[in-house]
Write a protein that binds this DNA or RNA. Structure first.
Length: 572
RNA sequence: CGGGGAGUAGCGCAGCCCGGUUAGCGCGCUUGGUUCGGGACCAAGAGGUCGAGGGUUCAAAUCCCUCCUCCCCGACCA
């Protein structure tokens, strides 16, 4: 491709809407343009990358025997009502009406469509196993789209479902996906973590996420560097905190603590450490009132609490607390409080003579001990793991890192097939629920994550496997011998099947170099002064900034060598 | 949903508090010329419903009201 005939609108200045590195660079490099909040057009370069990514995904999916489908984006309301999600999806679902006033949605996911197909078409164990996948646009009206391609309202996703007759076969399908995903992300040139993940509201038994560490990521991981333990913070565990902590106040006493609410304020006001404060947080579960307790230097993990209690939980809002308990948030405590259940985190168990809210505004009670001054029916792991906590497996300190979720695989099991009524006839003629797995990948996120990982101060750096082009030819003059030689080289490389972009603009060298760095094509071939003097081309590797000089006879072989090296070294 | 910021030429911004000729600047763009290994130089030029609507005023980018769009932070851990 020649630049002058291409549409590559690079920008000199940082666009106003750009925030994180990948977003800014994709805009600057002319890969994407924003159409609306969380909605992007892919320009030719961006689309080339997208197609490379999707090709890799297709190849690896086909390799595990998956078949590609194409589903509609327009889904009628009736289909959602089968699963109850017309209501439960809430505002995240884009809804519209057709000319006859029928309700439709833009698919935020395709589970219902798939399930309907399975339900209608899969009848016998002989029809199983199957892996069905699709790469499609999903629409979700996110409360806050952000970070360019990382959180969009319209985005491309590879989704697959495994359909099996037995749990053993599900394990096999899961394994296949686990391996296929590993290959996909590796082939995309990414460095990633595979972490244990929450199965969420959908239920299911096992789940992993494929994560790229990045400060721009919205997820947090707990990672152990000593053993293999790593998990999404939503479910991460730590070696239980069971230290004995002796508080400062030895006898139970109600103390006036005017306007002292937060743990920090309490600890400063009373001169106690945050570790001897028992934090009391009120939750609702199915209309029941639950008080959750955690040590003052820790936080509650709602997802864990939900699992312990079985079912979704919702925190009490401060207004609701005042209404139901007649006390402001900040002075809630476990003594004589009217709740259905008290759950304590293990970290609270060892506190003696601690500090709690008095359930009366502007008062706290000191010298309070769980089991003595109040009963905790259940102790459980309900706290959020934090930096430096000990690994549950090997007791080394855990590190907390932000990460971008690129892929998520999980064993749905029968939960979905049972609610959606998806059954097959077994060998003995008995109806049994199809055992399902669900597996997703965000394509745009792969593009963004690659730049979050590799972009440098000069611009993007694409892994060879997903780069828009492999080679970027830079003739520094568009006349005379340099132009002729560049044309000849371009033709030769294209004929040999290389993907080449040639900057044939009549621009100064500085402009061409800057744009080349910005686009991040892995190999750059410069034809300029060195060629005029010694007939030498310069091949430069974008990632390492290393360059070699070569003559016209050897250049093709040299290119192949470098590409080979790049592929060997994880694609960069 | 709560809080904050922004919308002026293709892009990035100034002007707005304190209303007053033809609304500026940088980059980009067009034409001509000189350049040609890290975002060149000279000259001439084109390009604007100042987000939309309404109001105040002799006069509005500027003041007031309503709305739209975009960005950031937060969404209740007491």
């Amino acid at each position: 491709m020649k630049w002058r005939k291409s549409f590559i609108p690079t920008l000199r200045e940082i666009p106003r809407e750009g925030d994180i590195k990948s977003h800014i660079l994709l805009l600057k490099g002319g890969f994407i343009r924003q159409v609306a909040s969380g909605v992007y057009a892919f320009l030719p370069l961006g689309w080339r990358v997208f197609k490379k990514v999707s090709q890799i995904i297709r190849e690896e999916m086909e390799r595990i025997g998956a078949q590609e489908f194409y589903y509609p984006s327009l889904i009628p309301r009736e289909l959602w009502e089968l699963s109850g999600r017309w209501i439960s999806f809430g505002d995240d679902m884009f809804r519209l009406k057709d000319r006859k006033s029928r309700d439709l949605s833009l698919a935020p996911t395709h589970e219902e469509v798939v399930s309907e197909l399975i339900k209608k078409e899969i009848r016998s164990y002989k029809d199983l196993p199957q892996i069905w996948y699709q790469i499609q646009t999903k629409f979700r009206d996110e409360p806050r789209p952000r970070a360019g391609l990382l959180r969009c309202r319209e985005f491309a996703m590879k989704d697959s479902y495994s359909l099996d007759a037995t749990w053993e076969e599900l394990d096999k399908s899961y394994e296949l996906h686990y391996d296929a995903y590993s290959k996909i992300f590796k082939r995309c040139g990414l460095v990633f973590n595979i972490v244990e993940a929450s199965t969420g509201v959908m239920g299911g038994k096992e789940s992993h996420e494929f994560m790229v560490e990045s400060s721009s990521g919205e997820d947090s991981l707990a990672i152990c560097h000593e053993c293999s333990y790593s998990a999404n913070l939503e479910i991460a565990e730590a070696y239980p905190m069971n230290e004995e902590i002796e508080g400062k106040y030895k006898s139970k006493e109600k103390i006036h603590t005017p306007d002292v609410r937060s743990v920090q304020e309490v600890s400063e006001f009373l001169g106690v450490t945050s570790r001897e404060i028992i934090k009391s947080i009120l939750f609702k579960r199915n209309g029941k009132k639950v008080l959750a307790l955690v040590r003052g230097d820790c936080e509650i993990n709602e997802a864990k609490l939900a699992r312990v209690l079985g079912g979704e939980v919702r925190i009490f809002e401060s207004g609701e607390i005042l209404e139901e308990f007649g006390v402001s948030a900040g002075f809630v405590g476990p003594l004589e409080i009217n709740v259905d259940e008290i759950v304590g985190d293990y970290s609270v168990k060892g506190i003696k003579n601690g500090v709690v809210g008095a359930n009366e505004d502007n008062y706290h009670i000191v010298g309070v001990t769980p089991g003595v001054d109040f009963e905790v029916k259940k102790f459980a792991d309900i706290r959020k793991v934090k930096q430096g906590d000990l690994c549950p497996k090997c007791k080394s300190p855990l590190e907390i890192k932000n990460a971008i979720e690129l892929g998520h695989i999980f064993k749905l099991g029968t939960r979905y097939s049972e609610t959606m009524d998806v059954y097959y006839a077994d060998k003995d003629g008995q109806l049994k629920p199809v055992i399902m797995g669900s597996y997703g990948i965000g394509l745009g996120r792969i593009m963004a994550a690659a730049q979050e990982l590799y972009a440098d101060e000069d611009g993007m750096v694409w892994p060879l496997s997903i780069a828009p082009f492999d080679i970027h030819i830079l003739p520094l003059e568009m006349r005379g011998r340099i132009k002729d030689e560049a044309d000849r080289l371009y033709k030769k490389l294209v004929q040999k099947g290389e993907e080449v972009l040639m900057d044939d603009r009549d621009e100064t060298p500085g402009v061409k170099f800057k744009d080349a760095d910005l686009l991040g094509i892995p190999l750059r071939i410069t034809i300029g002064r060195k060629f005029m003097e010694k007939n030498l081309f310069e091949i430069r590797v974008r990632k390492t900034k290393e360059s070699i000089e070569t003559d016209g006879n050897e250049i093709y072989d040299k290119i192949q060598n470098i590409k080979g090296e790049l592929l060997k070294n994880g694609n960069l």
